[in-house]
Amino acid sequence: MSESRKAFLNGVRAEIPLLIGVFPFGMIYGALALNAGLSTLASQLMSSIVFAGSAQFVTAQLVHDSAPGFVIILTIAVVNLRHMLYSASLAPYLKNLSLKWKALLSYLLTDEAYAPSILNYEKEGITPVSHWFLLGAGFSLWFIWQISTALGIFLGAAIPKEWPLDFALPLTFIAMVVPILKNRPMIAAAISAGVVALLAFGLPYKLGIILAALTGIIVGTVLENAKSPRRAL
């Protein structure tokens, strides 16, 4: 077995435990997208092109609420700001790759692909085939996400429209967020964002979502920096 193939399969194996949790979210998205008014093709293409679970859930909700296009785009940009941090973290390990490789890996970069990949880089360092690990992790997640979305769309088409599937969206985000609230900055960011979202609920064009996200980011960043020890001059 070639070294690149071995690294690719190692990435797939590292991703498998995360795929078990991702699969039901893909199914929920597929059903919610149809319930929000998106066509079958648009729902599946969003998983193939956008390939960002949280952004897709938010988009489905905003489409359901008839939000303007610029609000949807701006909200997705805010929600996905964390990918800039992932990119900055991986940049030192990927800087010598070709532009084609960087473009491919940036497309496949998600929360679930980043976690095992950065641990692998920190453990193994940079090798001629280390980027194949990230490719394996990212591609396996992409593949499962397409299948779970398609299954959710197929099952969602048989679900009566009067069923309140849109209520599954906040429940999904609660299930995703609560387990990672492990320190005071994270908890404060979540609480502040939630409070602002409630207070700004009446703003036009669903701008309260953007305001809440920015508030959470600012509060979390300020508290995180405050607890970090200052470097001696």
Rank of each mutant, 00 (worst) to 15 (best):
V63F: 02
V63L: 03
V63Y: 01
H64W: 02
D65Y: 02
D65G: 03
D65Q: 06
S66L: 02
S66R: 00
P68Q: 04
G69P: 13
G69V: 02
F70K: 08
F70H: 08
F70N: 06
V71M: 13
I72C: 13
I72L: 00
I72W: 00
L74P: 10
T75W: 01
I76S: 12
I76R: 01
V78T: 13
V79R: 03
V79K: 03
N80M: 03
L81R: 10
L81I: 11
R82N: 12
H83V: 02
M84L: 10
Y86G: 03
S87P: 05
A88F: 03
A91H: 10
P92T: 10
Y93H: 14
Y93S: 12
L94T: 14
L94G: 11
L94Y: 09
L94K: 14
K95G: 00
K95E: 00
L97F: 00
L97R: 15
S98C: 01
L99T: 06
K100V: 05
K102G: 02
K102L: 06
A103K: 12
A103V: 05
L104G: 07
L104F: 03
L104H: 07
L105A: 12
S106D: 11
S106L: 12
L109A: 15
T110M: 04
T110H: 07
A113D: 07
A113P: 08
A113N: 11
Y114H: 13
A115G: 09
A115K: 09
I118H: 04
I118A: 10
L119Y: 05
L119P: 14
Y121M: 07
E122P: 08
K123C: 06
K123R: 15
E124Y: 07
G125C: 08
I126W: 00
I126Y: 01
I126F: 01
T127F: 00
T127R: 14
P128I: 02
P128H: 11
V129F: 09
V129G: 11
S130T: 10
H131C: 08
H131M: 05
H131D: 12
W132I: 06
F133P: 15
F133G: 09
L134V: 05
L134C: 12
L134S: 15
L135S: 07
L135G: 11
L135D: 05
L135V: 06
L135K: 12
G136D: 07
A137K: 04
A137P: 11
G138M: 07
G138H: 15
F139K: 14
F139Y: 10
L141P: 11
L141A: 14
W142R: 15
F143K: 07
I144T: 15
I144C: 15
Q146C: 04
Q146T: 05
I147R: 05
T149N: 14
A150F: 15
G152R: 05
